[in-house]
């Protein structure tokens, strides 16, 4: 976890986006290396606006010059999944279903903000809803169900 806020890779230069200075990067490997770093504001609670953030670059676009739907769905999976795992007492939960609606196109270079909240918890399932926005505009809304493995 970087000291002094979030340092983001932009090409070969490390730059600090002013809106993201109070957030901390969440270290994740594998496929998340393509969609990271994802940042979290440690002062905010689940459901609060601008709790998660990601600064997209040109490599995250689609052929039309908008943020790729796969990138936004991956961010939603991570924002909702991280929120779910705050409720599992260390147990792993996996996505059973994720429904995503694309409300508007997003651009590179401006932070995408994310938030999620649990809507229902059963013994083995966690229902969660969240959204992604950019510049005050909703890009994506999502609902999902996670299964607690072994429960």
């Amino acid at each position: 976890m970087a000291a002094g806020g979030a340092r983001l890779m932009t090409g070969r230069n490390m730059t600090l986006h002013p809106d993201l200075s109070s957030l901390e990067p969440i270290g994740m490997g594998g496929f998340n290396a393509y969609v990271g770093p994802l940042l979290r504001d440690p002062a905010k609670q689940p459901g609060e606006e601008k709790r998660f953030a990601f600064l997209p670059e040109a490599k995250h676009l689609n052929g039309g010059g908008n943020l790729h739907g796969g990138l936004l769905m991956t961010l939603a999976d991570n924002v909702l999944g991280l929120t779910v795992h705050e409720q599992t007492e260390g147990r792993i939960a996996s996505t059973v279903t994720l429904n995503t609606d694309f409300l508007a196109g997003g651009v590179a270079g401006e932070p995408v903000w994310g938030r999620a909240a649990i809507t229902r918890r059963t013994r083995s399932l966690i229902f969660v809803a969240g959204d992604l926005s950019q510049g005050g505009k909703l890009l994506l809304t999502a609902t999902g169900i996670w299964k607690i493995i072994g429960a």
Partner: peptide, 22 residues
Amino acid sequence: DARHDNSAGVIHGGLLMTFADS
């Protein structure tokens, strides 16, 4: 391959959703 897993060590749902969108 190993570039596509998640923190649980299995294929990331984001990869599957991106491939689906494609």
